[in-house]
Design a protein around this nucleic acid. Structure first.
Length: 799
DNA sequence: GTTCCCGTTGGATCGAGGTT
DNA sequence: AACCTCGATCCAACGGGAAC
């Protein structure tokens, strides 16, 4: 029911007050919660009473996002807009919508009633169910709604039902796409609509996805497609309405140059995005859709539960919902503060430099970033080109010397690794520098400035269901917080700082977490080998040094060469401690071996990574496998197990192919991958078995996913112990938790560390604390003296 | 009115960057 | 190996203007 008057409203509230389960969904006028977007309506479904309500508050309020371009730069007067090309839909739409909306009844409820709705929201003991909870939670929280006691997310359920929806093909209903239109399969007006034949949904083989409507259609829920269809019709009607309105105003300067065209030209300029522009529609047009949303969410949840029960994953589902709500969402709410001045300062420094390099390369040689052209250039004899660099003024002197040309050069890729072979060429030096500067400026600093809210807080998106293995992923308009560069001359993390001086920045990193877990699973749980790696960990041996020395990397890779010869070959400077330098380099190679060979690494991989020939790599692999026999066996074990069809944990009569992660009980299921797909490469038909490919990764998924699980569940335990006044995590970076602790509560970190390692695993886990010497996220270094670190409020105790 | 060329768009794709 | 984002290129669609 689309609630429209006080009587209906009061009645709806009494039902909500009595409900123990509330399925909820928020429609908004954009995605940027806590900045310029906000809820327009709230929908709930109360499964106990089979009642659904829609509360419209702000239909008609919002801004059409205008994408300005080079020919229509920001600030262009509407009457002077350039109309060439297909674009300007959004500009046109926004302009006419504003005029049209001036005297339209959107059928909203008075905004003062919002407070009454809040009063019955988040009551004790009530579970709220969402589809993609983090979005709705942010919208509700920003609007001032109380936080629910407990939540469930059907996206989380789907992730447990099948970790890799995108990776498998499923026969399912579909909506027409632009591509279908261009192929003549459907009419232009049908794009975005469910494909039907004689009133029945058509199906086709396609990649799976977790969209609510798609899932509902896939499982054949009643009303799965009705809401979409109704909304589609409403949108089409609305587009017609706006077109007519525009046509009724031929004198309007904005129609200059357009009005004499046929009306369908104008009609084509008015194109609503169903989701993004929903706020433009009066609530009466949208309520049906919005209410169906919550009903379908409930149906989806009911569909998932028995499956989760069959898989013995009900407890994990509850646990992961808690991680989602109490860890991931809390991280997103916390965020980190952007030192705007520093970010702007950094950008002001970078932009002219980027410009200079752009100019120098662009004008003289080719468009920068054109990898094809760059490759052509480097592959040709142009490397002997007379041009040897026209350096920008600021270019450091030491980078102007020792230049080289490379006659007859050849390279197959233009990535950093390949360019390294030509790094004394002036052009290559400038390209490498350009890419680095551009990366800092665009991917990170600019985005943060854009994404920060009024208090200069940037919030990373932390996705608990972002990966197949169970790790978190990170995305959103503040970018990926799991890959911000902090080494190799980057200083951009300096722009990220504590909220205020009462907060101390810290990071808790597990020590070699994945290797320890792999050793535990392979050597203890499966009993392969003789606890070789486990014992080394327990005796505190440096694993990489051990591998280096036992395998004798130096003699195998560089037989009979002197230290000086090897270092020269490696391109290392010959300083006063050549032996130590060589030892460090060989330890690095030991590390590469340990990490690569723990899983499915081969001599091909090793020879590529270490840049050695295949024969030498084969020798190294052989010796390593002798040394740690458990891991190749674990690989074979999981590969084999995952290809064996057998009963599901709580439903022995139902068969599936899967492996199970210890502790969490999370499964990696591969029976739904196809066993054979074909594709064309250079006109030749080739075959590929996705199921076998997935089975080869299952061993890797076990320690990797388990690591993510231990880290985030430890975070959950810590978060339940300490509230937001004391402890604020803001990111999970796979095997690390980054956050802030209040300066008066610093000793609690000791307890958080013991929570993190409190898992019944052999070898035991270790965790290292890092603090920030300079107070920014850039300057993290290991804390050696915990008490001093606490006493000095994070200023000392590092070394 | 038709044809051609050019410039402006946006979508798809590719390849690069970075972290663990 | 996984993840996410950005930018360049290619491509196709389309508008506008010139030439016919």
């Amino acid at each position: 029911m689309n609630v429209q008057d006080r009587e209906q409203f009061d009645d709806a509230l009494t039902w909500i007050e009595r409900a123990k389960i509330v399925v909820a969904d928020v429609e908004s006028n954009g995605l940027r919660h806590r900045r310029n977007h906000y809820p327009i309506s709230f929908s709930v479904y109360l499964p106990e009473f089979d009642k659904s309500f829609n509360f419209p508050f702000r239909h008609g309020e919002g801004e059409v996002e205008v994408h300005w371009s080079a020919s229509n730069p920001a600030g262009t007067d509407f009457a002077e807009a350039n109309w060439s090309g297909r674009a300007k839909k959004c500009m046109y739409l926004g302009y006419w919508f504003k005029k049209w909306a001036a005297d339209v009844d959107f059928k909203n409820l008075p905004s003062t009633w919002l407070e009454d709705l809040k009063a019955v929201w988040g009551l004790p003991g009530v579970t709220y169910i969402f589809h993609n909870a983090r979005f709705d939670l942010h919208m509700l929280d920003a609007e001032g709604f109380p936080s629910p006691d407990k939540i469930e997310d059907t996206m989380m359920a789907l992730h447990l039902v099948n970790e890799d929806w995108g990776g498998m093909s499923i026969t399912a209903p579909f909506t027409w796409t632009l591509k279908d239109k261009s192929r003549g399969l459907c009419q232009p007006g049908q794009v975005g609509q469910w494909a039907t034949l004689d009133g029945k949904l058509m199906t086709k083989r396609q990649k799976g996805n977790r969209r609510l409507k798609w899932q509902a259609a896939l499982h054949g829920f009643d009303g799965a497609t009705e809401g979409e269809t109704a909304l589609h019709k409403a949108v089409m009607r609305f587009e017609e309405t706006l077109t007519e309105f525009a046509l009724l105003h031929p004198e309007d300067p904005y129609n200059k140059g357009l009005i004499q065209k046929k009306s369908n030209k104008i009609r084509s300029k008015i194109k609503l995005d169903k989701k993004a522009n929903m706020w433009m529609l009066p609530s009466s047009e949208v309520a049906y859709y919005a209410e169906l949303d919550v009903v379908l969410t409930w149906k989806l949840r009911e569909w998932c539960m028995p499956i989760l029960a069959d898989w013995n994953n009900l407890e994990l589902y509850e646990n992961q919902n808690a991680v989602l709500y109490e860890v991931a969402w809390r991280m997103e709410c916390n965020g980190i503060k952007l030192n705007r001045a520093h970010a702007e300062e950094e950008l002001a420094k970078l932009h002219p430099m980027i410009e200079d390099l752009h100019w120098a390369i662009n004008k003289k040689v080719f468009k920068i970033g054109a990898h094809v052209k760059l490759k052509e250039f480097l592959n040709s004899s142009v490397l002997e080109h007379e041009w040897m660099g026209e350096w920008p003024e600021w270019w450091p002197g030491n980078k102007k010397v020792d230049l080289k040309i490379y006659p007859g050069a050849y390279l197959s890729s233009t990535n950093k690794e390949s360019l390294k072979d030509y790094d004394d060429h002036p052009l290559v030096r400038m390209i490498v520098e350009y890419r680095k500067l551009k990366m800092s400026a665009d991917t990170y600093l600019t985005n943060w400035l854009e994404a920060a809210d009024e208090n200069n807080i940037v919030r990373p998106g932390m996705n608990p269901d972002g990966t197949n293995s169970g790790r978190f992923s990170s995305s959103g308009d503040a970018g990926n917080f799991q890959n911000i560069p902090d080494r190799g001359g980057y200083t951009i993390k300096r722009a990220l700082v504590p909220y205020d001086p009462s907060w101390i920045l810290f990071a808790l990193d597990y020590g070699q977490l994945e290797a320890r877990l792999a050793a535990w699973v392979a050597e203890t749980l499966l009993g392969f080998g003789n606890l070789e790696m486990t014992m080394l960990f327990e005796n505190g041996v440096d694993m990489h040094v051990y591998t280096r020395d036992i395998v004798n990397i130096r003699e195998v890779v560089y037989p009979g060469m002197t230290t000086k010869q090897i270092l020269t070959k490696l391109g290392e400077p010959l300083d006063d401690k050549p032996e130590a330098l060589l030892a460090a380099r060989c330890r690095g190679m030991g590390k590469t071996m340990n990490f690569g060979l723990l899983y499915n690494g081969t001599e091909y991989m090793l020879s590529a990574l270490l840049k050695i020939d295949k024969e030498t790599a084969r020798k190294l692999v052989y010796t390593w496998r002798e040394l740690f026999p458990a891991f190749a066996k674990a690989q074979a074990y999981f590969e084999d197990l995952s290809l064996t069809s057998r009963g599901m944990p709580n439903a022995p009569e139902k068969n599936a192919k899967y492996i199970t992660q210890p502790i969490s009980g999370r499964h990696r299921k591969i029976h739904r991958y196809p066993t054979w797909v074909t594709f064309y490469e250079n006109g030749i038909r080739k075959g590929f078995n996705p199921q076998e490919a997935a089975s080869r990764k299952t061993w890797n998924n076990v320690p990797q996913g388990l690591g993510g699980y231990l880290c985030t569940v430890s975070g959950l335990k810590a978060n339940r112990l300490y509230d937001n006044d004391e402890l604020r995590f803001f990111a999970n970076i796979h095997d690390a938790l980054d956050g802030f602790v209040n300066r008066d509560n610093m000793p609690i970190i000791k307890n958080v560390m013991s929570i993190m390692i409190d898992w019944d695993i052999r070898p035991g886990l270790t965790v290292d604390l890092s603090g920030s010497k300079d107070g920014t996220w850039q300057g993290m270094s290991e804390v050696k003296d915990f008490d001093l670190w606490c006493d000095s409020k994070g200023k000392e105790g590092y070394d």
